[in-house]
């Protein structure tokens, strides 16, 4: 058991599993700090995953696949933005609608295009993202005991490094830039932003566009890099897990990363424990697959103290007070 929990393979898998969560969680971070609740992370991720897998299969280029996936994800973001910002609709309802739309469309279109029951064909090697090896890490590999652990950091898809680079970038962007200051302000008190002569609508659209781009990355990574094809409902609640991580992290970038790594670790352990036996009893796969979700509930219910969302989060902005 311990060899599963602490092995280098599990840690390497943790990094891979946490990447879609990190992308999605940062998407939620940017969106929610501007006051737009985004339940639709899941749907956008799924739409992007399908687009990327389909485009990869047709076009054979991971970069074009990524670009198209981002485009589709942004399209969904704009729908959410129109409902939530312009029409002042209920943001949760709009997000749920996006999730349902994405789940349905992916299957219907997938069936129509590829006739494989909603799957996409496995991607050819040239449609895969290049793998990045940390320079000099091949030598480290041979160091006894700790070598393999350090090597965990090397040899992943380039998107993995993009995800981890985005964490400090987001933290810095929110804290130190004009855009970040205004974005945080609009999530707390849009009236203050409006009276300072800044457009609330524009800021919030910028925020959801960022969320759209990041969900595009999340979905693409999931289908192209992690699994090599699209299968129906493949996001499997990752969008909601990312939201949980966001709450867990109290809407901050660095803690978001740690929360996603924790959830990623639970997923990695879950994968590795399939077929695991206690004595003669094999633990059903379903129980192991449940782990990250159960932990999410437990952590959210019991282990985090009070978390304070941005004050204007979920409230449409109107000039009347």
């Amino acid at each position: 058991m311990l060899d599963i929990l602490l092995s280098a393979e599990t840690l390497s898998s943790t990094i891979r599993m946490s990447v879609p969560l990190i992308f999605a969680c940062l998407a939620g971070l940017w969106s929610e700090r501007s006051g737009i609740v985004d339940i639709g992370l899941e749907g956008k991720m799924l739409a992007a995953a399908f687009t990327a897998a389909a485009a990869g299969a047709y076009l054979g280029s991971p970069w074009l696949a990524l670009l198209l996936a981002i485009g589709v994800s942004i399209l969904f973001s704009l729908v959410h933005g129109y409902a939530a910002i312009n029409q002042r609709g209920n943001q949760v309802v709009s997000g749920v609608a996006i999730n349902m739309l994405a789940a349905g469309l992916a299957v219907v279109l997938g069936n129509e295009w590829f006739k494989e029951g909603g799957r996409t064909p496995p991607l050819p090697p040239e449609a895969q993202f290049p793998v990045f090896h940390m320079p000099g890490f091949s030598a480290i590999q041979s160091i006894p005991v700790i070598g393999p652990y350090i090597n965990v950091l090397s040899g992943h898809s380039v998107l993995v490094y993009v995800a981890f680079a985005l964490v400090p970038l987001s933290a810095w962007g929110l804290a130190k830039t004009r855009f970040g200051l205004r974005l945080r302000a609009v999530g707390e008190n849009p009236h203050a932003v409006d009276t300072a002569g800044i457009s609330v609508t524009k800021l919030r659209y910028q925020a959801i566009l960022i969320a759209g781009v990041l969900c595009g990355f999340a979905g693409t990574y999931l289908s192209v890099a992690l699994q090599g094809s699209f299968v129906r409902d493949m996001t499997a609640g990752r969008g909601f897990m990312a939201l949980a991580a966001l709450i867990f992290a109290n809407w901050r970038a660095w803690p978001s990363m740690w929360a996603c790594l924790l959830f990623g670790y639970l997923q990695a352990v879950g994968l590795r424990m399939q077929g695991f036996k206690i004595g003669a009893v094999e633990i059903p796969v379903q129980f192991i697959n449940m782990l990250p979700y159960v932990m999410t509930v437990v952590l959210l219910a019991g282990f985090i103290g009070k978390s304070t969302p941005p004050r204007a989060s979920g409230t449409p902005y109107t000039k009347d007070r």
Binding site: T177, R178, R182, G197
Partner: peptide, 10 residues
Amino acid sequence: VLGVEGGALI
């Protein structure tokens, strides 16, 4: 400074 940040960095 909100609204009169001057540049891209605050």
